[in-house]
């Protein structure tokens, strides 16, 4: 079987999970509710500014939920179907399969991000004027992260899209890493979801209790530079240490690192399973 065909089959397996569609339905409803909550007076370029702000404001929660739901079952699928032993006899080897699975996951991340941008475009088109894609950001700057004010909104949207795809892919690779150690998809979902939810709860509630303490400072730093911070654009804070280009470089490095680590651990586990 060629690699493309293998990728196609893996994609089919991933996208045929009914859990994804149930989560997608709920997330879409909640996301549209979240869009309504961003009420603003009518000012120029509002469509593009709101589109740039929607993912860092609420969209990243739903992207994270869908990543956890979709990716959690990607690796344990064979185990849960009772064919993991059969998989060990696969001609091209487990390593190839893992590479293909991780590429399919990247496609999945791109689809999710595109889907939420699509929903936001659809909702905002009904209320705001679409003109101004090539206007400069400084005319009505986005609120949730720092971007070069000389950029046009077209450049900003391309940058933001790339950023969120990379951030969500890193989170997805982390879920893959978890699933190399945990065999049941529900528990992977539970642990992956809890890690993300704990970060959000910290940011929304716990920080109010300990915000003035030194511990609060350390935990905020951890929040800012872990998965929640990545997905909510905290790496691009106005006073953050990274420039826009450096963040891309860093994310690519982390993604490659996790990709390689998953391959290494996957190969090691194969040897353990084979007993050699």
């Amino acid at each position: 079987m060629s690699l493309i065909k293998l990728g196609f089959m893996e994609g089919k397996k991933l996208f045929s999970q009914r859990e994804i569609y149930i989560a997608l339905f709920l997330c879409t409803v909640l996301f549209v509710m979240g869009l309504d909550a961003i009420g603003e007076p009518d000012v120029p370029l509002l469509f593009w500014r709101k589109l740039a702000d929607v993912i860092p404001y609420v969209g990243f929660w739903f992207i994270a939920i869908l990543i956890v739901v979709g990716v959690a079952r990607c690796l344990p699928f064979e185990q849960e179907q009772g064919m993991s032993e059969l998989l060990l006899t696969y001609k091209k080897g487990r390593l190839t399969l893992l590479v293909v699975k991780q590429i399919v996951i990247l496609m999945y991340c791109v689809s999710i991000v595109l889907y939420f941008y699509g929903i936001a475009v659809f909702v905002f088109t009904m209320d705001y004027d679409l003109t101004g894609l090539f206007a400069q950001v400084k005319e009505n700057p986005n609120l949730y992260f720092y971007a070069n004010l000389e950029w046009t909104y077209a450049e900003l949207m391309i940058y933001e899209f790339g950023y969120i795809v990379l951030a969500s892919y890193i989170f997805a690779l982390f879920i893959v890493l978890l699933s190399l150690f945990i065999k049941r998809s529900v528990f992977i979902m539970m642990i992956g979801g809890s890690i993300f939810a704990a970060g959000e709860l910290f940011d929304k509630f716990i920080i109010k209790y300990i915000g003035t303490m030194e511990l609060g400072y350390y935990l905020t730093t951890i929040y800012d530079y872990m998965f929640n911070g990545m997905l909510s654009f905290r790496y691009l804070n106005y006073f953050g240490p990274f420039s826009t280009n450096e963040v891309y470089g860093l994310f690519l490095f982390i993604a490659f690192l996790l990709f390689g680590m998953n391959l290494f651990l996957g190969r090691w586990q194969r040897h353990v399973a084979m007993g050699d």
């Binding site: 009914r18 859990e19 149930i22 989560a23 709920l26 997330c27 909640l30 939920i65 739901v69 959690a72 079952r73 998809s185 529900v186 979902m189 539970m190 979801g193």
Partner: peptide
């Protein structure tokens, strides 16, 4: 399905 239950109830 435990997964579906966890997703539906967990998100809500």
């Amino acid at each position: 399905s435990h997964g579906v239950t966890a997703i539906l109830s967990g998100i809500l």
